Amino acid sequence: MTPWVQMLVTMADGPALPVHGTMVPYRNSDVPLHYYYGTYGEEPVFLPLRSEGVRLLRWGRRSRIESLDGTVLFVSDGETAWDFTTDPDRPRCTEVKNVHSPGSGRFLVITPRVSHWAGEHWARPTGPVSDVEFLGRPCWSVELGATENSDPPEPSLRLVVDAESGAVLGQHGGDGIDGAAFTEVTVGEPLDPSLFTWDGPVITDDESRIRAGRGTPDEPDREESLQWFRDTVTADPIRVPVTVDLSPHSVHWIDRDAGAFSAELGQGRYQGWLTRRPRSTEPWRVQTYSGQIAWSTSDFDWAIQTRRGALDAVAVDSLQQQLHPGEPVVGTPPLAFGGSDGP
């Protein structure tokens, strides 16, 4: 039985021998994939993995992705990454650590630092390392469990690693939903090191931020491009329901005797304000926002201001049922706009 530490040492610095072949990602679900990321304003770089498969070349920490017809899509020397998907003559350039990879397949393309395996993101193997054969080659297979405090919860991860070279040949989610694997592979055949670098013109992170902020010289006319979208896609308004957590983040003002309060809404991200006062015929000075809605029940006047704009009738009804179940809306309080001095 192969110890986990032996497998880890073999794969830690990427394939010790040149590796190339066809790699195919998969996703066994019709549920949309949600991927969250943040940048400093630059255009992000994503691993260009295609559902039909790609040609993947690996050697150490270096990697190169080509389409099945040989078009260069992505190159990395292990420190820097070049994305050719937008402009084959002037690729987008960034540090390899900034490359995003929704779905599975990252471990086949990018070798993480040793600290990744020693850190808190992934727990230790959930079982022993297995000796398996994959694509006619002796390999190791191991399942790694995500840490208990991962948020959102993540499935376990199964890796298939070539025992001779240390190349990751397969990456599979423990829930069986997505993964990626070589469908054919060649190990040990010489590769030209120049395949893993680029010395031509590039678009850097800084240049990408400038282009995003100011636009580019060849950016289409705004109105013309919008008209193209209307003509070729749709001219109708595009609206979809969005679930927003309006649970109070904090209550800034409260009158326990009267039952009045003013609360900031949104757990972790500001979403608006909710205020309440005893029902009154006196004008109520509230903040002026486009998402302002006010109503009255038999005992209280209510007002909510939402950051994401106006709530539709269904959303308002749901909100009122949660705030005062069984208490019907009986009217609208008299409002005085132009600032707020509390409920």
Rank of each mutant, 00 (worst) to 15 (best):
D83N: 07
H121C: 10
T71K: 13
D162V: 10
A118K: 10
V72F: 07
L47R: 00
T147V: 13
V99C: 06
D151N: 14
W82S: 03
S101P: 02
R124Y: 09
T71M: 06
T147Q: 14
D69H: 04
F107N: 03
F107W: 06
L159Y: 06
V129L: 06
R158N: 10
R92Y: 06
L56F: 11
G145L: 06
P128R: 13
P138M: 11
G60T: 04
S76H: 03
F84G: 08
N149Y: 11
E143D: 13
G136Y: 15
I65K: 00
W82V: 04
S101C: 14
R55T: 12
S63R: 01
R64F: 06
E66P: 01
D89P: 02
P153D: 05
V72Y: 06
R158E: 15
V114L: 14
S51W: 12
G103V: 11
R113Y: 14
S156H: 04
V161D: 00
C93V: 08
G53V: 08
L135T: 13
R64H: 02
L157I: 07
S63W: 00
T126L: 10
S156M: 02
E79C: 03
T85S: 14
A146E: 10
V54P: 00
V99N: 02
I110Y: 00
R106S: 06
P102C: 05
L108H: 03
P102A: 04
D83T: 12
I110M: 05
D77G: 08
E66Y: 04
R62A: 13
F134P: 03
W117E: 06
D162L: 10
S104Y: 14
D131S: 05
F134L: 08
L108E: 02
R90W: 04
S51A: 15
S150Y: 09
S156A: 12
D87N: 12
E154Y: 09
R113F: 11
N149G: 07
D151F: 08
R55F: 05
R158M: 15
A81E: 05
V161A: 03
H116Y: 13
E154G: 07
V142W: 02
V161K: 00
R50W: 04
A118L: 15
T80I: 14
A146Q: 13
S156N: 09
E79G: 09
T126Y: 02
L73K: 05
K97P: 00
V160M: 09
C93E: 15
T80Q: 11
T80K: 07
R113P: 12
G127K: 12
L159D: 02
T94F: 01
S130E: 10
P48S: 06
L159S: 00
A146V: 05
L47D: 02
P125W: 07
R64S: 04
S130R: 09
R64Q: 11
V109G: 03
R61G: 14
H116D: 13
P44L: 12
